[in-house]
Nucleic acid binder design. Structure first.
Lengths: 197, 197
DNA sequence: CCCTTTCGCATACCGTCGGTATGTGAAAGT
DNA sequence: ACTTTCACATACCGACGGTATGCGAAAGGG
């Protein structure tokens, strides 16, 4: 009787690589960490890495997907705690800003992501995990008559970009609480312009 | 009498490296182009490159600064053609979107820039060349009473991020004219919310 | 229970990359 | 005319991402 089945061992190694990759990519950036160092920190070898992932970029892709799903989870949780569409929407935006202020999240999701995977692939991941909820929220706002009927696709990109950049800026702020409050205020004000009269 | 003085020759080589770097970085990305290939395309050697720039990243930095100054030039020109602060502002935003839709500009300025130089340094360059004008325009709007008094720093980041992401999205659009129009419309509507009543 | 196959991973190695140390020849200074 | 400067070219290095191969234990079959 083996202490660990093969499936268990395999999954454990994979998770270790993901955790280690996430930690190192977040702290020193994708280009700043070599595979030799990464596998040593994970306690395995390059053979193990290439058994689980096709390339360094593929490992990064898996890490990025994991990070995005975590952020999306926090956003959805915050939104679902509210009742009406408008409050769900603003709560989700604020939760996204709060979650994305984490420096670990930023470097992987916002800085290195587009450059490593290319903008198109990064956008596809972002759409599948994060921007999808934003689009759904905007559609719900239009359908419930809270905001005026209008194309949601450009709105989604504008708001997504605005919040991404705002999160990066907030992370460097010397007065995070005030800047966060002012950012949410400005964002809410701008969103308010879309409301039906 | 020399055909070329040393200063002339030096500047010519430097410009050739900048042009070649810009072309290659734009088409295949920073990580996708090697220095050997770059210097061969420029008709020089690595010795020449490292005589003019401290590193590959330093060459990219110079290229990025040049690209940003061109974009900023177009934005300022469009803004200065208008009279009142509000129209200058919207004209500048539209000019930025139009200029940043160029794929050559995008990859260097919006995708690779933050990852190669780090967000902080990229932000400093952006602030010096591009976002500075945005801040000035917003301050002018507040001082002239067009929009309500409010902190401009978070507004600048929100709008800058929104336009950057919108430009990337527009570049992949299958109906660029319509999407551009809708984006400008949504942007203008959101900005309208900031107007004094 | 043994024998075979599978497979998760380690080892050894390769081409290429960014970066550097040194050489060189022509322009510039005196 | 002689020296110095300097804008490069050449040759080389360690480190990197990636691959080909070997190995040993778990899984499967009789």
């Amino acid at each position: 009787m083996p202490d660990l089945t093969r499936r268990q061992q395999r999954e454990q190694t994979r998770q270790t690589l993901l955790r280690t990759g996430r930690r190192l990519f977040a702290t020193r950036g994708y280009a700043g960490v070599g595979l030799a160092e990464l596998v040593q920190a994970a306690g395995v070898t390059k053979g193990a890495l290439y058994h689980h992932f096709d390339s360094k970029a593929a490992l990064f892709h898996a890490v990025l997907a994991q990070v995005q799903q975590e952020v999306a989870g926090r956003v959805v949780a915050a939104a679902e705690a509210e009742g009406d569409p408008w409050t769900r929407f603003t709560a989700g935006c604020e939760a996204f800003l709060a979650a994305s202020t984490d420096p670990e999240v930023q470097r992987i999701m916002l800085v290195d992501g587009p450059a490593v995977l290319g903008w198109a692939q990064w956008r596809a991941l972002d759409e599948a995990n994060s921007a999808r909820h934003l689009t759904e929220a905007l559609v719900a706002l239009v359908e419930s008559g809270v905001i005026a009927p209008q194309p949601v696709a450009p709105l989604t990109r504008l708001l997504s970009g605005a919040m991404n950049e705002a999160a990066l800026w907030l992370a460097t702020s010397t007065r995070p609480a005030e800047d966060m409050a002012e950012t949410v205020a400005a964002l809410t004000r701008m969103l308010g312009a879309l409301r039906s009269r």
